[in-house]
Design a protein around this nucleic acid. Structure first.
Lengths: 203, 203, 203, 203
DNA sequence: CATGAATGAGTTTTCATTCAT
DNA sequence: CATGAATGAAAACTCATTCAT
């Protein structure tokens, strides 16, 4: 394992002023990421845009990957907050309600900050993007339980879960960009729910 | 629309010698892309690896984006060749055979050069990747005809096509990386075909 | 109007250390300009001669034009200082004394740093040279007042001023290079004064 | 004396085709000089614009200075042709007619190809510009004779000639750029003639 | 002769990162 | 801690010039 240190922030700012500095840096990173993409993201530009001295940047972050990692961490956090509501509905429901809830959660997650989301998923090189979030998706874990309880007629549960995850993500993700109207109207969601239910309801 | 010129090659090589040079450059680009990702791709490295003077590189390509564009062009070309066989099965078949053929084509396309495919789809920033291939997928066009002929019970044909496209791509794409075993055994394909058929067969 | 930004310095140095750096850069630019001409002036050479890292150069100047512009700015400043003395004589004098003073001022200006002056006026492409000093010559403004007060017998005052300006500049300018002896002895100055007086004294 | 060869053309083209090539190169050089200035003049660009292979360029010219020298040679030639008419009037006239003729010749020379003239005199670095035309101006030689015959009341004939030359050139040269209206109307010429006559007519 | 190709040697410019105060 | 300054290293791109066919 090489310097994974590259990804973690350096100092956790405790004082008031420092936190403002860090926030400015993270915000600037997000802005530049959205506007110009990862390629043109440089530590100098981030510092300049944040109105922070470049040396200060290095006081808190070991490099630009760490900045991006922090941006993603905060974004994921925000997404999880957004999902938490729909999450509750997940318990003790029937299959349709469950699937509907799962899809809603996905949509909610994508609605948090679509542009940043796009930048984080599409502009980032996979190497940068993938690192640091290998944990099992809590939503998937929850879904597994529900599906098992409902004894969905599926051969390989893991595979089915993977399919659902893959399909739902893809439809929502591409939908945000290519069919925003259908997403907003709920038509796309409906289509997705139909697809998933037909897939899961087997004899 | 800024200078799209950045993407087109500069000179088209006419002599034998220069064609070799260009090929070496394109090959080197592909190699480096696979090995180190787009981020670390530099014109200097490409030239060096190709054993070509940097100035020669610029004689034929205006920059690294053009190199990558050419790599992608060739890759897509190879994919289309690979798909052409399965393409023939598409005509005059029933729904299941059609869907099965479509999936096979997708798999075949992904089998051409998986590592390069991965690099081109995952490592490339969307800005770079998306540009220059806005043409309608010929496969989709074909699929539309078949579906219409079979009068698939679907409300909005375009949407359904989009769904099929999105879902199939996602499953195959992620499958290549995350479930290569299932793909090789045909299990994943079968699962995908099932899913698509259930989605398309409505009353 | 393209990025005129290319001409203005980037950062204004605040600390002692950086002021020295900037001075070294400007001085090196002037030296190289005099020695090798504008053509052979490169940012690398400037940085090297100044004993400054090339990146530091770009921290303060956006390119070589800005360096040259700064050199010129300082040179003009020095010239104006040199002219200020003779300037005082300009007030409340008769025509001859006035013309003599004007000529003296021109000579004084050209005496500041003849080699640099030559480099700036002869070696620089007009595009580079002309830009950024379109302001009305304060000397001319002064001369106009004097001429008007003396009610010089001239049809078109503006044209006459332009003539005087043009003629005086040319004689002094070419004189510095081609007839330095005559200039030093005062003979050329005398000739010029004679010429101007005869031109201005009409009935 | 270093490789003055740098300035002379290499081969004098005898065949039809070659002359066309050379002409295209010279013309392209002139065009680029006018449009983009000496700085951006490169052999590659000249060849490209002329529609001539770069290697062919080097068959006829040893470098870009030689190209420019040839452009200037042709321009001067054209100017001399243009001056030849007015030249004839120079013989056996009185002072005023002579001066008037001299000025006319200067104006005629500047009228040949003003833009190219400007490029050649203002954009070219002195080092490049000055080389290769050190010969005594035939016009000046002629003027000397006339002045001597008319026994103009001047102390130092050489100096006076130099003054006339300098002043006339400057007024016309700057006039072309800054007062084209006055030049076209003849007002500027008149002013210049007046100035010169008053200078030359002394007791 | 003409042409496509090739290239050594730059030139411009930027980046990530460190240092002294 | 913060900040202005500094810099090694390299990336992007160009130029004059030559060579093989």
């Amino acid at each position: 394992m090489p310097r994974r240190t590259k990804l973690a922030p350096r100092k956790t700012p405790t004082q008031e002023r420092s936190r403002a500095t860090v926030d400015a840096l993270v915000q600037a990173t997000a802005d530049l990421l959205v506007r110009d993409g990862y390629e043109k993201l440089t530590t100098n530009r981030v510092a300049e845009r944040a109105g922070v001295n470049i040396a200060s940047l290095y006081q808190f972050f070991p490099g630009k990957e760490a900045l991006v990692a922090e941006v993603r961490r905060r974004h994921v956090e925000a997404q999880q907050v957004a999902m938490r509501e729909a999450m509750t509905e997940l318990r003790g429901q029937g299959l349709e309600a469950t699937v509907r809830a799962l899809v809603s959660m996905g949509v909610a997650a994508h609605a948090v900050n679509p542009k940043l989301h796009h930048a984080l998923t599409e502009e980032l090189p996979a190497r940068v993007s993938r690192v640091g979030q290998p944990e099992e998706d809590p939503v998937l874990a929850e879904a597994r339980k529900v599906f098992e309880r409902l004894s969905v007629g599926v051969e390989d549960m893991e595979r089915a879960l993977w399919m659902v995850d893959t399909v739902a993500h893809a439809v929502i993700h591409r939908g945000v960009i290519e069919r925003p109207g259908d997403l907003a109207s709920g038509a796309l969601t409906e289509e997705l729910v139909t697809l998933l239910l037909r897939y899961l309801r087997r004899r």
